[in-house]
Amino acid sequence: MLLALAAVPVLIAVAVRLSSSPPEPGRGPPFLDRVTQNGLFVSITALVVCIPLFLPLTVGVVAGDTIAGEANLGTLRYLLVVPAGRVRLLLVKFAGAAAFCLAATLTVVASGALIGAALFPVGPVTLLSGDTISVGESILRSLLVAGYVTVSLLGLSAIGLFISTLTVVPVGAMAATIVLSVVAQVLGALPQFEWLHPWLFSHYWLDFADLLRQPIAWTSFGDNALLQAGYAAVFGALAYGRFVTKDILS
């Protein structure tokens, strides 16, 4: 899965490199036009492309598999008989899913930076505000963005964890999690549900760009972290309630 994620920036970079005319500003995914000028933008463009579907997809697979996958293999009962402890198992599984979110995001960012550096010139990076920062600081910003995206995915991970405790069919849990992430984004795009928007876990997903302003706009980072923490707490508690009372019959 990480390999597939790593392939996205490569695909973007190669496509831009091979196309005869450079992308026009304002067309295609944001930042695409900057790629030819500065390879470091491949990471950011790739993230923009991955966030709506590809990252939630992989996170859904991983989070949906956490408990249901173990139950399906029959390993869950052995872990519990060890005893691994149900709460501890949930925490470890959530930590694992969170680690995957980080790994997935870093994979996209790192692979984007590498392929970008290989195919395009690298130099000082222009921020959204028009200010320019050094390559070193831009790497720092990329890591910040990776952190932001990782945090963004934690709510979805918690939802996946909860769904995963409901079933012994991992594919069902994965599908349900992914479907939810799509539904959240669809709702987020409908003005009729405006009152709901700030409550959707996908609400701040694309606002990582606020880290690319000068000075950094931290508000969305804080709001996002708070929202994701709320989701993690609610669905973590639900997963706890479900899992500690669950009969392990698989």
């Binding site: 304002g26 944001p30 959204l128 505000s129 028009g130 694309l206 606002d207 760009a209 706009a217």
Partner: peptide, 29 residues
């Protein structure tokens, strides 16, 4: 003034006798 659009920004910068308008989406100053 920085108008913070999603994934983009429009700036108005006044500094003495210099005024800049910046549009990140169009990449024009």
């Amino acid at each position: 003034v920085q108008v913070m659009d999603r994934m983009a920004e429009r700036d108005l910068i006044i500094n003495g006798y210099d005024v800049w308008l910046w549009d990140s989406k169009e990449n024009t100053a």
